[in-house]
Design a protein around this nucleic acid. Structure first.
Lengths: 197, 197
DNA sequence: CCCGCATCATGACAGCCGTCATAGAGTCGG
DNA sequence: CCGACTCTATGACGGCTGTCATGATGCGGG
């Protein structure tokens, strides 16, 4: 979550995602995004003629892709893949960030949902797509671990729901307790979905 | 969640919570709150000399108390109390609202956490207190159902985390799927925490 | 009566917002 | 050289924000 893309355009999308997950969509100004990306203000209307809505939409799309890529990376890094192991890795990404850099930021998709679900239909849709882009590889990974097809998507939803909620609580409490708790409590449930193992 | 208190002051706190859970903290203006409560604008600075921060803080406090009261009410309405039953009731409150009135609003505490966790320390603290005021009666209820003391608080955290996350996803997707899924999948796990039953 | 106080009302303030208009650079192909 | 273009730069606009100052009410008690 540190590297920034090459062109000014990608940098602005990345910066938007960073600022949104820290301050929310409403509190994130276009000028702030340009400044954070080290990009000229005039580039905003050039690259994003659709205005803030377009920028936020692309930031969410980026976030969805990023989350999906992380899932793929977690899988590659596991020699004995188990559902609980994947969930632990997903949770650990957040505990690591919080313990290393503080509780400044949460999930950009959650922020967009809270701020825009009712006010902007296109942003709401972008958030839904981001959640879908994240859920899909998680469910596929569960199937790859032996979870029956029919249970894979519900379990992926459980994983992402509890992770998102735990992120909220952790940020409010400034304590990773909620995150470590859901990882520990849900592990057995997830592994029990693999039949005969 | 429909009734409004008697005095203008209580009505404004209530209205603030309603608007915050719909549009987020940042997008909710003080003037909007007064208008929504049918209260004069001049009353804001009279009842809330601490400004917006105070108003938001009291709205979160109200939300925490409200959630705790609901838990108590769910308990009274159950003849054969089981952890899964409590969780189902908590989830159903949201599915009922969403199916009856649409997906306009989420949880005010989540909204405040997303919007203010980094920008306002006092609001962040108020959100943490609200989560605590909610978690406490849930954990106590679990103990009353036979869940060992040591597991009650972690399980309550799991319940609230997954509920909060599912609310987010449901609102983004405009579909209660995530909510019904977490209720169904987590039920057995919760009931299994009651030893010898 | 009238003082004092709680409440309400209104307008002004500085500041930020997203957006747009306009125009200046740089660069590449002809 | 020159037009065409991508990109940058800057200033203005109307609108909204939270906050404050000031003043007008209403109303109960001395």
């Amino acid at each position: 979550m540190t590297a920034s893309g090459r062109g000014p355009r990608e940098r602005m999308v990345f910066s938007a995602a960073q600022l949104i997950r820290r301050d929310g969509v409403e509190a994130t100004g276009m000028r702030d995004v340009a400044a954070h990306a080290g990009a000229p203000r005039g580039s905003l209307q050039h690259y994003f003629p659709g205005g803030k809505e377009q920028l936020v939409g692309e930031a969410l799309q980026w976030a969805g892709r990023y989350a999906a890529d992380r899932v793929a990376r977690f899988l590659r890094g596991m020699d004995r893949p188990a559902p609980s192991g994947l969930f632990t890795a997903m949770v650990r990404q957040w505990t690591d960030e919080y313990e290393a850099s503080g509780f400044a930021a949460g999930c950009p998709v959650a922020a967009a949902t809270v701020d825009c679900a009712e006010s902007s239909e296109t942003t709401r849709k972008a958030a839904a797509d981001a959640f879908a882009a994240w859920t899909r590889p998680v469910a596929a990974a569960l199937v790859g671990m032996g979870v029956p097809e029919a249970r894979s998507e519900p379990l992926a939803t459980v994983m992402i729901s509890s992770l998102e909620g735990a992120i909220l609580i952790a940020r409010a409490e400034r304590d990773v307790r909620a995150l470590t708790t859901v990882a520990r409590e849900l592990g057995p449930l997830l592994d029990a979905a693999v039949p005969g193992d």
